[in-house]
């Protein structure tokens, strides 16, 4: 039983990590708090719904296409937003940075209302994963294992990108010392734009992956943003591995916490956030600037 709780916690953690990793990277490199992060997530879910349902009569094939295409679409939207709006705000006060993200939240919510209406939208779980799989004596739905696997794969991929590629070197250099890196001729514009693209790609992927389980819901934007912020803050702003650790921590606290105090789930994340920040003001893996 505890093993099953552990696996369901792992599944929550995988989604939380994908949701929050991008937010953390943006802050680490660009020093930008993108409050509208969850809006990209919501948009990804609705786009994936349309592609899965409308593109092909076979919803499995449609979902596969959505899985490949939607994160890219979201990345393109993210890049457009960066070029049009955030690019002009990197030097501005943190307050002035927050303002346009709030504007974006309103815009995205209205866009979804206008295009997809007010009802929740959903797709079937891909039929490849309809059978539960026995893992160490417990039956776990195949799709959950797929989510956990994808989360792990993407973690490795991001690790490789950041630690083993020339691009990653520039990212690390900029994150470590922005002014010095820029002074040495790192093309800041391109760098920031690509970071934004990667970050929105990740959140787009999270949206598509969770769609068969959660459905596309108007209003999921704020919930997703709050979840992502909790992960990033507990892990430490700008730390990808912190985000991973925090996602695991939150996933496990939820999975096991409900066995102990099922009536206070609503406060779990915020209590965790407050406690971590009070003990370690920069989060688990963060550095105070």
């Amino acid at each position: 039983m505890l093993w099953l709780q552990f696996m369901s916690g792992l599944q929550s953690a995988a989604i939380l990590f994908l949701l929050a990793a991008g937010l953390s990277i943006i802050y680490g490199v660009c020093h930008l708090l993108n409050i509208a992060h969850g809006s990209f997530f919501m948009l990804a879910m609705f786009l994936a719904y349309s592609i899965t349902e409308k593109l092909s009569s076979n919803s499995d094939a449609g979902f596969l296409v959505a899985l490949l295409v939607v994160p890219l679409m979201i990345a393109i939207i993210g890049i457009l937003v960066e070029v049009l709006i955030f690019r002009h705000l990197y030097k501005a006060d943190v307050l002035v940075q927050i303002l346009p993200s709030i504007g974006l939240i309103f815009l995205a919510a209205d866009l979804v209302r206008g295009v997809w209406g007010l009802e929740s939208r959903s797709i079937d779980t891909p039929s490849w994963f309809s059978e539960p799989v026995a893992v160490m004596g417990a039956y776990i739905p195949g799709y959950y294992l797929f989510i956990i696997g994808t989360g792990a794969l993407v973690s490795v991929l991001v690790w490789f990108l950041v630690n083993r590629t020339p691009w990653g070197l520039l990212v690390r250099a900029t994150a470590a010392n922005r002014d010095a890196a820029l002074g040495l001729g790192v093309n800041a514009r391109w760098m920031f734009t690509s970071v934004f693209g990667l970050s929105t790609w990740l959140v787009g992927l999270a949206g598509v992956l969770i769609l068969p389980l959660a459905g596309a819901n108007p209003g999921s934007d704020l919930d997703a943003s709050v979840d992502a912020f909790a992960v990033v803050v507990i892990g430490g702003l700008g730390s990808i591995w912190g985000a991973l650790a925090a996602a695991l921590l939150i996933g496990m606290v939820k999975a096991f916490g409900i066995l102990i105090v099922p009536q206070f789930t609503i406060a779990f994340v915020f209590i965790l956030m407050a406690v971590v920040l009070l003990v370690r003001p920069a989060g688990l893996f963060g550095k105070l600037s």
Binding site: I85, H88, L89, V96, L99, P100, I102, G103, L104, I105, F106, L107, A109, D110, L111
Partner: peptide, 13 residues
């Protein structure tokens, strides 16, 4: 809401 959002973004920029 979109109009409000646009106003906010334009002022910030």
């Amino acid at each position: 809401l979109s109009c409000l959002g646009i106003v906010i973004i334009v002022v910030a920029l």
